[in-house]
Design a protein around this nucleic acid. Structure first.
Lengths: 207, 207
DNA sequence: ACCTGAACACCGTTCAAGT
DNA sequence: ACCTGAACACCGTTCAAGT
């Protein structure tokens, strides 16, 4: 369906589309060629082999991950705001982000955010190694949460429902029906995320 | 090289070995057959296709993830101890655990740990939905941290060293050489992990 | 400089056939 | 019940050849 001459950018566009729709494994060189209406071998001329095509995709994704604009009055609020913004950006292109993670380039992707976090932690009065640790703790938590969230979404129905574990209330029963009910319900990720980040930050910024 | 008759267990053992050594993609049906000294098709007779072989591997990994024995005097200490134990178990078989994650079965794998966490959170005086949230926050943090850690290990050297970002101290300089130095150094994961979990738990258990 | 088809070495999987 | 080789439809990649 492609009439214009084949170009590196066109290839990357089509490849990114395929990855976002069917995952990395859904991107085959032959399928990509078909999508572009060219011979497979033409792709090799423009972008090299599959691996370097994926590398290019990752690089583009890194550049697209824009700057972060924190909102809120207190450092804590601004850190939470950075975290939430980041989570949304990451979740907007899950498959491409997964490729960034797999290549271990998460840190690089997080540099703008890290800068913002350093600013806020500094504003809150932390200095030196202590400040660095706080920044890293928050950073790990944000990325980690999104990764866990993604994994969970792949198997929406957990085989033994989380709730049924607690009806064997024999040994040291947590006879707390509200707790059991809460654990049986699927979590609200957005809420849990905000709550977690806020809890962690509150503790890290405390003297 | 296998002389004994082909058995399902033998296949799973060899497959697990190949996965742990070369990752999931390193497990090919033909390679596995060669390793076992049989025809590829024999494997299909015993375990079905590749996908159900991987499923079986995941199931076995789930069962192997043993119970957790928390240590320490305070609930906080015991939660941290559970977290550390879990991290070690997860890191002992990274590739197999990755498969569990990919299938979204992390929750199921975490059931024994979740039970322990509920106990401690309850002991600390939390009840109902509040307790459930605390448990989940800790759970997400543990798994998330390990996932991030694994990703990081795949690209030991980050292209633009984290430190060099801060020498452009023009706009709002964090003129904090100790902080810059700390961020330039690679983090100590074990330390960062304990610190993070402890910080989060302290905040969650606070009234 | 750009594009092509043919060919190679790999996959997972199926099937009819052996014992 | 268990194992086999041949065959199929897919891969990524290379290469010599076209324009």
């Amino acid at each position: 369906m492609a009439r214009s001459p084949l170009t590196r950018t066109a290839i990357l566009d089509a490849a990114a589309e395929m990855v976002q729709q069917h995952g990395v494994q859904g991107l085959t060189m032959r399928g990509l060629a078909a999508e572009l209406g060219t011979a497979v071998t033409s792709i090799y001329w423009h972008v090299g082999n599959r691996e370097s095509l994926l590398d290019a995709l990752v690089e583009r994704t890194l550049q697209e991950m824009g700057a972060i604009r924190p909102g809120g009055r207190t450092p804590t609020d601004r850190i939470v705001s950075v975290a939430r913004g980041l989570r949304h950006e990451l979740r907007a292109r899950p498959h491409l982000i997964a490729m960034v993670h797999e290549r271990g380039l998460t840190d690089q992707m997080f540099l703008p955010a890290q800068r913002a976090l350093v600013r806020e932690v500094h504003a809150a009065g932390l200095r030196g190694a202590r400040a660095a640790q706080a920044v890293r703790a928050v950073q790990f938590q944000i990325v980690g949460f999104v990764l866990v969230e993604r994994n969970r979404e792949r198997a929406p129905i957990q085989s033994p429902a989380e709730g049924e574990l607690w009806d064997t209330g024999d040994h040291d029963p947590a006879e707390d029906p509200a707790l059991v009910r809460a654990l049986a319900r699927p979590p609200d990720p957005e809420r849990l995320f905000t709550l977690s980040v806020r809890a962690l930050v509150r503790s890290l910024l405390a003297t």
